[in-house]
Amino acid sequence: DETGKFLVLALYDYQEKSPREVTMKKGDILTLLNSTNKDWWKVEVNGRQGFVPAAYVKFL
Rank of each mutant, 00 (worst) to 15 (best):
residue 1 D to Y: 07
residue 1 D to S: 14
residue 1 D to C: 13
residue 1 D to W: 08
residue 1 D to R: 06
residue 1 D to A: 14
residue 1 D to H: 15
residue 2 E to N: 14
residue 2 E to I: 15
residue 2 E to D: 14
residue 2 E to V: 14
residue 3 T to L: 14
residue 3 T to Q: 13
residue 3 T to R: 10
residue 3 T to Y: 14
residue 3 T to C: 13
residue 3 T to K: 13
residue 4 G to M: 12
residue 4 G to Q: 14
residue 4 G to W: 12
residue 4 G to T: 14
residue 4 G to F: 12
residue 4 G to I: 14
residue 4 G to P: 15
residue 5 K to A: 12
residue 5 K to G: 11
residue 5 K to I: 13
residue 5 K to H: 14
residue 5 K to S: 11
residue 6 F to P: 12
residue 6 F to D: 09
residue 6 F to M: 15
residue 7 L to T: 08
residue 7 L to G: 03
residue 7 L to C: 09
residue 7 L to D: 04
residue 7 L to R: 11
residue 7 L to I: 10
residue 7 L to Q: 12
residue 7 L to A: 06
residue 8 V to S: 02
residue 8 V to K: 01
residue 8 V to I: 09
residue 8 V to N: 01
residue 8 V to D: 00
residue 8 V to T: 04
residue 8 V to L: 15
residue 8 V to A: 10
residue 8 V to R: 01
residue 8 V to H: 03
residue 9 L to V: 15
residue 9 L to H: 05
residue 9 L to Y: 14
residue 9 L to T: 10
residue 9 L to R: 09
residue 9 L to P: 00
residue 10 A to E: 00
residue 10 A to I: 02
residue 10 A to N: 01
residue 10 A to H: 01
residue 10 A to C: 10
residue 10 A to T: 03
residue 10 A to K: 01
residue 11 L to S: 04
residue 11 L to N: 04
residue 11 L to D: 02
residue 11 L to G: 04
residue 11 L to Y: 04
residue 11 L to C: 08
residue 11 L to R: 07
residue 12 Y to L: 10
residue 12 Y to M: 12
residue 12 Y to I: 10
residue 12 Y to C: 12
residue 12 Y to N: 09
residue 12 Y to F: 14
residue 12 Y to A: 11
residue 12 Y to K: 11
residue 13 D to N: 08
residue 13 D to S: 08
residue 13 D to R: 02
residue 13 D to T: 05
residue 13 D to V: 02
residue 14 Y to E: 01
residue 14 Y to R: 02
residue 14 Y to V: 01
residue 14 Y to Q: 01
residue 14 Y to F: 08
residue 14 Y to N: 01
residue 14 Y to H: 04
residue 15 Q to S: 11
residue 15 Q to T: 15
residue 15 Q to R: 10
residue 15 Q to M: 13
residue 15 Q to A: 13
residue 16 E to P: 15
residue 16 E to S: 15
residue 16 E to K: 15
residue 16 E to F: 05
residue 16 E to D: 04
residue 17 K to N: 11
residue 17 K to G: 09
residue 17 K to A: 12
residue 17 K to Q: 15
residue 17 K to W: 04
residue 17 K to R: 12
residue 18 S to D: 13
residue 18 S to T: 12
residue 18 S to G: 13
residue 18 S to W: 06
residue 19 P to S: 12
residue 19 P to N: 10
residue 19 P to R: 08
residue 19 P to Y: 09
residue 19 P to F: 09
residue 20 R to Y: 14
residue 20 R to C: 13
residue 20 R to L: 15
residue 20 R to F: 15
residue 20 R to V: 12
residue 20 R to S: 14
residue 20 R to P: 05
residue 20 R to Q: 14
residue 20 R to G: 15
residue 21 E to W: 04
residue 21 E to T: 08
residue 21 E to Q: 11
residue 22 V to H: 03
residue 22 V to Q: 03
residue 22 V to M: 10
residue 22 V to C: 08
residue 23 T to Q: 04
residue 23 T to E: 03
residue 23 T to S: 15
residue 23 T to L: 02
residue 23 T to V: 03
residue 23 T to H: 04
residue 23 T to N: 06
residue 24 M to C: 06
residue 24 M to D: 00
residue 24 M to S: 00
residue 24 M to W: 02
residue 24 M to P: 00
residue 24 M to I: 15
residue 24 M to T: 03
residue 24 M to Y: 02
residue 25 K to Q: 10
residue 25 K to N: 09
residue 25 K to I: 08
residue 26 K to M: 08
residue 26 K to Q: 11
residue 26 K to D: 02
residue 26 K to T: 07
residue 26 K to C: 06
residue 27 G to W: 05
residue 27 G to N: 07
residue 27 G to M: 03
residue 27 G to S: 03
residue 27 G to R: 02
residue 27 G to D: 06
residue 28 D to P: 00
residue 28 D to F: 04
residue 29 I to Q: 05
residue 29 I to A: 04
residue 29 I to L: 09
residue 29 I to R: 07
residue 29 I to C: 06
residue 29 I to M: 07
residue 30 L to F: 05
residue 30 L to M: 15
residue 30 L to Y: 09
residue 31 T to D: 05
residue 31 T to M: 12
residue 31 T to C: 10
residue 31 T to N: 09
residue 31 T to G: 06
residue 31 T to W: 11
residue 31 T to P: 13
residue 31 T to R: 14
residue 31 T to H: 11
residue 31 T to K: 13
residue 32 L to V: 12
residue 32 L to M: 05
residue 32 L to T: 02
residue 32 L to N: 00
residue 32 L to W: 03
residue 32 L to Q: 00
residue 32 L to G: 02
residue 32 L to A: 03
residue 32 L to F: 05
residue 33 L to A: 02
residue 33 L to T: 04
residue 33 L to M: 08
residue 33 L to D: 01
residue 33 L to Q: 03
residue 33 L to G: 01
residue 34 N to F: 06
residue 34 N to Q: 09
residue 34 N to P: 03
residue 35 S to Q: 11
residue 35 S to I: 09
residue 35 S to F: 10
residue 35 S to D: 11
residue 35 S to H: 10
residue 35 S to C: 14
residue 35 S to W: 15
residue 35 S to A: 15
residue 36 T to S: 15
residue 36 T to Q: 13
residue 36 T to L: 10
residue 36 T to K: 13
residue 36 T to P: 04
residue 37 N to K: 06
residue 37 N to H: 13
residue 37 N to M: 08
residue 37 N to V: 05
residue 37 N to Q: 09
residue 37 N to Y: 08
residue 37 N to D: 14
residue 38 K to C: 10
residue 38 K to D: 11
residue 38 K to W: 07
residue 38 K to E: 11
residue 38 K to A: 12
residue 38 K to H: 11
residue 38 K to I: 09
residue 39 D to T: 14
residue 39 D to P: 03
residue 39 D to N: 13
residue 39 D to L: 15
residue 39 D to R: 12
residue 39 D to K: 13
residue 39 D to S: 11
residue 39 D to G: 09
residue 39 D to A: 11
residue 40 W to E: 04
residue 40 W to V: 03
residue 40 W to F: 07
residue 40 W to I: 03
residue 40 W to M: 06
residue 40 W to T: 02
residue 40 W to P: 00
residue 41 W to K: 02
residue 41 W to I: 08
residue 41 W to P: 02
residue 41 W to C: 05
residue 41 W to V: 09
residue 41 W to F: 10
residue 41 W to E: 00
residue 42 K to P: 01
residue 42 K to T: 07
residue 42 K to M: 15
residue 42 K to C: 11
residue 42 K to Q: 11
residue 43 V to I: 08
residue 43 V to Y: 00
residue 43 V to S: 00
residue 43 V to K: 00
residue 43 V to P: 00
residue 43 V to N: 00
residue 43 V to C: 05
residue 44 E to L: 08
residue 44 E to A: 09
residue 44 E to H: 05
residue 44 E to W: 06
residue 44 E to V: 08
residue 44 E to R: 08
residue 44 E to D: 09
residue 44 E to Y: 07
residue 45 V to C: 10
residue 45 V to P: 00
residue 45 V to E: 03
residue 45 V to G: 07
residue 45 V to Y: 11
residue 45 V to R: 13
residue 45 V to L: 15
residue 45 V to I: 15
residue 45 V to S: 12
residue 45 V to Q: 10
residue 46 N to A: 10
residue 46 N to F: 07
residue 46 N to W: 06
residue 46 N to Q: 10
residue 46 N to D: 12
residue 47 G to V: 02
residue 47 G to E: 06
residue 47 G to M: 05
residue 47 G to I: 02
residue 47 G to N: 08
residue 47 G to H: 06
residue 47 G to R: 05
residue 48 R to K: 13
residue 48 R to G: 04
residue 48 R to N: 06
residue 48 R to M: 07
residue 48 R to T: 07
residue 48 R to A: 07
residue 48 R to L: 07
residue 48 R to I: 08
residue 48 R to F: 06
residue 48 R to E: 05
residue 48 R to S: 06
residue 48 R to W: 03
residue 48 R to V: 08
residue 49 Q to P: 06
residue 49 Q to T: 13
residue 49 Q to A: 12
residue 49 Q to Y: 08
residue 50 G to F: 04
residue 50 G to Q: 01
residue 50 G to L: 03
residue 50 G to M: 04
residue 50 G to S: 01
residue 50 G to A: 03
residue 51 F to I: 07
residue 51 F to V: 07
residue 51 F to C: 09
residue 51 F to D: 04
residue 52 V to P: 00
residue 52 V to I: 09
residue 52 V to K: 00
residue 52 V to W: 01
residue 52 V to C: 03
residue 52 V to Q: 00
residue 53 P to V: 02
residue 53 P to M: 03
residue 53 P to D: 01
residue 53 P to I: 03
residue 53 P to K: 03
residue 53 P to W: 03
residue 53 P to Q: 02
residue 53 P to A: 02
residue 54 A to S: 13
residue 54 A to M: 05
residue 54 A to K: 07
residue 54 A to C: 06
residue 54 A to T: 05
residue 54 A to F: 03
residue 54 A to Q: 05
residue 55 A to T: 13
residue 55 A to K: 15
residue 55 A to I: 10
residue 55 A to M: 11
residue 55 A to C: 12
residue 55 A to P: 08
residue 56 Y to C: 08
residue 56 Y to M: 11
residue 56 Y to N: 05
residue 56 Y to H: 07
residue 56 Y to F: 14
residue 57 V to Q: 00
residue 57 V to E: 00
residue 57 V to A: 02
residue 57 V to R: 00
residue 57 V to N: 00
residue 57 V to F: 05
residue 57 V to T: 04
residue 57 V to M: 06
residue 58 K to F: 10
residue 58 K to R: 14
residue 58 K to S: 12
residue 58 K to Y: 11
residue 58 K to I: 15
residue 58 K to E: 11
residue 58 K to T: 15
residue 59 F to G: 06
residue 59 F to N: 08
residue 59 F to P: 13
residue 59 F to H: 10
residue 59 F to R: 11
residue 59 F to A: 10
residue 59 F to C: 13
residue 59 F to D: 06
residue 60 L to D: 06
residue 60 L to W: 11
residue 60 L to Y: 13
residue 60 L to A: 08
residue 60 L to H: 08
residue 60 L to S: 06
